[in-house]
């Protein structure tokens, strides 16, 4: 058997599944967003779904909110993750246990974290009770709205909770493979601790941080269940809005839902571009 044939046969099942399911789903969504679905008699593609989406104020609010959630969560998580990795890279007594605790929520699904954040930060949650205990608030409504709030603070808190270890583990592995010798060189050439971090360690781990951040951004932009649990009703995060439109009793809203799905897909295509650019660079170093 020739190598080409071998490669083809090895790849065929996986490619079949991914192309049919993933790209088939994407393409069908794209077609339906243009009201084009020959199977059910729609043969004249049009832009009406996009027109109604892009003229709807709720879509813009929803898009901005989702972007805000994804951007803020990603930036905060990345910064804290670098800090956490700096803390954990040293050897210290009890490092094994601390590392385990640091990684524990990696396997805890986002949904559980969202419920936990709800129980902690709602106006009758644990922190509100703590505030009441110290007479800082008189009634639950005095506690600042941190969930179902317009700034999506609860959602961001949840993502920061979940993504700091995720990015942190990647950054930590990055730091370990870079080693400490580059920093030693910089110190002996006269760089201070801060200069060493800024001019040596950060550039060395940056590609890894960036590719992890890209994954986080794309995920936080497209996740449904977290904003569904912790978000305000209006404006809702884009995936929630898309889901609502899709399951609307009015079937005419479905192409609009598809159009929103395509917006999310386009944004993640941009993310993939960044991911490739930087993860490639990391590989070629």
């Amino acid at each position: 058997m020739s190598d080409r044939m071998k490669i083809f046969l090895l790849l065929a099942p996986a490619m079949f599944i991914i192309v049919v399911l993933f790209f088939g789903g994407l393409l069908t969504g794209l077609m339906r967003s243009f009201n084009y679905m020959p199977v059910i008699g729609l043969t004249d593609p049009d832009l009406s779904a996009y027109v109604s989406v892009f003229t709807d104020r709720e879509f813009y609010l929803s898009f901005l909110l989702t972007f805000h959630i994804a951007f803020t969560s990603t930036v905060i998580s990345s910064i804290l993750a670098i800090g956490a990795a700096l803390l954990l890279r040293r050897s210290f007594v009890g490092r094994g246990i601390v590392n385990f605790l640091f990684q524990i929520n990696l396997t805890v699904p986002h949904l559980v974290g969202a419920i936990g954040i709800l129980y902690l930060f709602s106006q009758s949650g644990s922190f509100a009770r703590l505030a009441a205990e110290f007479n800082m608030i008189q009634s639950p409504s005095d506690f600042p709205a941190l969930v179902f709030d317009p700034y999506a603070i609860g959602i961001i808190l949840q993502y920061v909770w979940k993504e700091v270890p995720f990015i942190g583990v990647i950054v930590l592995a990055n730091m370990q493979s870079v080693g400490e010798d580059y920093e030693s060189v910089a110190r002996s050439l006269g760089a201070s601790k801060w200069q060493t971090f800024r001019h040596v360690l950060l550039p060395l781990i940056f590609p890894g941080v960036l590719s992890a951040s890209v994954m986080v951004f794309a995920f936080t932009f497209g996740a449904y269940e977290i904003p569904a649990i912790l978000g305000a009703n209006f404006p809702a995060a884009l995936p929630v809005l898309a889901y609502r439109k899709y399951t609307d009793v009015d079937l005419a809203a479905r192409p609009e839902a598809m159009a929103m799905a395509i917006v999310i897909a386009l944004l993640s295509a941009v993310m993939i571009y960044f991911y490739l650019r930087y993860s490639r660079r990391r590989i070629r170093g």
């Binding site: 010798d181 580059y182 030693s184 060189v185 110190r187 002996s188 050439l189 006269g190 760089a191 201070s192 040596v200 550039p203 060395l204 170093g285």
Partner: peptide
């Protein structure tokens, strides 16, 4: 501190910042 000693170390694998 290392940066104040006026000592520079050249490592075996050179460690040029890539």
């Amino acid at each position: 501190k290392p940066e104040d000693r006026g000592v520079v170390m050249v490592f075996q694998n050179y460690l040029l910042f890539p």
